[in-house]
Amino acid sequence: MDITTVTLNHYIALSVLLFGLGTLGVLVRRNTLLIFMSIELMMNAVNLMLVAFSHYKADLSGQVMVLFIYAVAAGEVAVGLAILIALFRHLKNVDINNFNIMKG
């Protein structure tokens, strides 16, 4: 079989790679906004996996699930950025190392 012929495996591999990039961003970067963007990257990887399975399984439920994920992502971004703005008012920066006010 020719390896350049695109199959479901290629989409899975791309999705896993993108998810790994997002995880690396969350673990390595210290700027909270960049961590936020990395989470969006991970969510996109999962969406790609859902749409790919929907296509290869000939089942529309996967695409509908992605539409729900969009709604949840919009709510998540709105609340998350509002929390970030509130934190910035208190601490005057967005470095995640300073967000330890709940440390017991």
């Binding site: 709510g75 709105a78 609340v79 950025l81 509002a82 929390i83 703005i85 509130a86």
Partner: peptide
């Protein structure tokens, strides 16, 4: 979405 809207404005 409605809850997120209200929460974001409040925060």
């Amino acid at each position: 979405l409605l809850a997120a809207l209200v929460g974001a404005i409040y925060l």
